[in-house]
Amino acid sequence: MPRPSVRRGAALAMSALLLPVLAACGGSQDDKKEKDAAKQGSDELVIYSGRNEELIDPILDKLEKATGTKVEVRYGDSAELAAQILEEGDRTKAGLFFSQDAGALGALSQAGMLSKLPQKSLDKVDAAFRGGQDDWVGVSGRSRVIAYNPEKTEKVPDSIHELTKPEWKGKVGYAPTNASFQAFVTGMRVLEGDEATLKWLKALKANGAKPYAKNGVVLDAVDSGEVSVGLINHYYWYEKVAEVGADKVNAKIHFLPGGDSGALINAAGVGVLKDGGQTEAAEKAVDYLLSEDAQKYFADVTKEYPLAAGVTSSVKDLPALDSLDAPEIDLGKLESLQETLEMLKEAGMV
C-alpha cells in the first residue's frame, strides 16, 4: 500500500504554493463533477492522517484488507493537514481526514468541508465525542493526567492551578510545542476564558516549569526525578509500563477530579471530506475504525480509550472512561488553535 508521508514545514509550504497553480489547470466544473461521480463508487481512498505513521499504519493495513479498499495515506501534523485541506478546497484529494485531535476536525466542520455521517455510524459513539453537526466522530480517546514521582513528592496536585504555587517552583515538566498540550490549553480557554488561561500560563512559566519537546520526554523526566510532576496524556504511562514492566517505572499518574481543566478528554477522530469524491469508501473506513477489531487495537496496542459502545479496554489498572471526572466541553470548539499559539507566544512558551 503506497504511503507517501507529508513532511511538515517545507513540503507543506511548497504544496501551498503549488495548489493555486494546480487549481487553475484543473479543468472545468463539469470535468470535476464527472471525476467526482466516478470516484463515489470507487474502491480507492486517500486518507490525510494527523496520527503518527508508526502508530497508525498497522490498523490502516487491516482497514485496507477488511474493506477491500486500496488506501493511500499522507501523514503530517493534524493542524497543518487541516490547513492544507482548506487550501485545496473543492479540489482536495483527501476522502477521509484522520485527526489526532478534535480541534482540527472542528475547523473543517466550521468551514463546511465535511459530510454528515450516516446515523448508524454516529450512534456507535457517545455524543460527547462527536461533532455537533454530525460530520465527524471520535474513534479513540485520551485523558490528560499529572504524572508524578513518589520519591520526589508526597503530595499530588488535584488541579493544574496548584502547579503555579511556590511549592512547585522548578518541579513541573510540560511540552508547550506538543499538539496535545496545545489542545489542552485551547480547552482551558473554552472552559475558563482567555484572560484566566493566559494568567495561568504566565504564572506556570514564572514558577520555573521546565519545557520538553514531547509527552514521552516529560514522562521520562518525571521517572528519573529530573522534575517531580509532569503534564501528559494517560497512555504514555501505560505504554511505558507495557514496554519495560511496572517494576521498572518510578513514575505514577493521577487522574484529576472535579472536572478540572487539566483532566480534558480529547478524541482522535475522522471526518469524510465533502469534496473528496470518495464518500462510499470513506464511510466504509469510518465503520471499520469503529468496529470491535479496530477499537480493540486502540485499546490494547495504543492504550487509548475505545469510544465505540460495547468495547472496553483490557489494559490493567486503567480506570473506566465513564468513571473519569472530566470537564464537560464541546470538543468541536477546540478548533481555535491559532489563538492558542498566539497566547503561548505571549506567555513566552513557544
Results as ranks from 00 to 15, higher is better:
residue 312 T to L: 09
residue 312 T to Q: 15
residue 312 T to S: 14
residue 313 S to G: 10
residue 313 S to W: 11
residue 313 S to N: 07
residue 313 S to M: 01
residue 313 S to Q: 06
residue 314 S to I: 05
residue 314 S to H: 14
residue 314 S to C: 05
residue 314 S to K: 15
residue 314 S to Q: 14
residue 315 V to W: 04
residue 315 V to R: 12
residue 316 K to Y: 03
residue 316 K to Q: 14
residue 317 D to L: 10
residue 317 D to M: 11
residue 317 D to V: 11
residue 318 L to V: 09
residue 318 L to F: 07
residue 318 L to W: 04
residue 318 L to H: 08
residue 319 P to M: 03
residue 319 P to K: 00
residue 320 A to T: 13
residue 320 A to D: 13
residue 320 A to L: 12
residue 320 A to E: 12
residue 320 A to W: 08
residue 320 A to S: 11
residue 321 L to F: 15
residue 321 L to M: 13
residue 321 L to C: 13
residue 321 L to Q: 06
residue 321 L to V: 12
residue 321 L to S: 10
residue 322 D to I: 03
residue 322 D to Y: 06
residue 322 D to G: 06
residue 322 D to M: 01
residue 322 D to A: 13
residue 322 D to T: 13
residue 322 D to C: 07
residue 323 S to P: 06
residue 323 S to N: 13
residue 323 S to E: 09
residue 323 S to A: 14
residue 323 S to G: 09
residue 324 L to P: 07
residue 325 D to K: 14
residue 325 D to E: 15
residue 326 A to S: 14
residue 326 A to Q: 12
residue 327 P to W: 09
residue 327 P to H: 10
residue 327 P to L: 08
residue 327 P to Y: 10
residue 327 P to A: 13
residue 328 E to F: 07
residue 328 E to G: 07
residue 328 E to K: 15
residue 328 E to T: 12
residue 328 E to P: 03
residue 328 E to N: 12
residue 329 I to K: 03
residue 329 I to R: 03
residue 329 I to F: 09
residue 329 I to H: 08
residue 330 D to A: 06
residue 330 D to Q: 00
residue 331 L to N: 07
residue 331 L to K: 02
residue 331 L to V: 05
residue 331 L to F: 01
residue 331 L to H: 06
residue 331 L to Q: 05
residue 331 L to I: 07
residue 332 G to L: 11
residue 332 G to A: 12
residue 333 K to R: 12
residue 333 K to P: 02
residue 333 K to M: 11
residue 334 L to P: 07
residue 334 L to H: 01
residue 334 L to N: 01
residue 335 E to Y: 08
residue 335 E to I: 01
residue 335 E to A: 07
residue 336 S to P: 01
residue 336 S to R: 05
residue 336 S to M: 00
residue 336 S to W: 00
residue 336 S to V: 00
residue 337 L to F: 07
residue 338 Q to K: 12
residue 338 Q to T: 09
residue 339 E to H: 12
residue 340 T to L: 00
residue 340 T to Q: 04
residue 341 L to T: 01
residue 341 L to H: 02
residue 341 L to Y: 02
residue 341 L to N: 11
residue 341 L to F: 03
residue 341 L to S: 00
residue 341 L to W: 02
residue 342 E to Y: 02
residue 342 E to I: 02
residue 342 E to K: 15
residue 342 E to G: 11
residue 343 M to C: 07
residue 343 M to A: 13
residue 343 M to Q: 00
residue 343 M to V: 04
residue 344 L to E: 03
residue 344 L to Y: 05
residue 344 L to A: 03
residue 345 K to P: 06
residue 345 K to E: 15
residue 345 K to I: 04
residue 345 K to G: 12
residue 345 K to V: 09
residue 345 K to C: 06
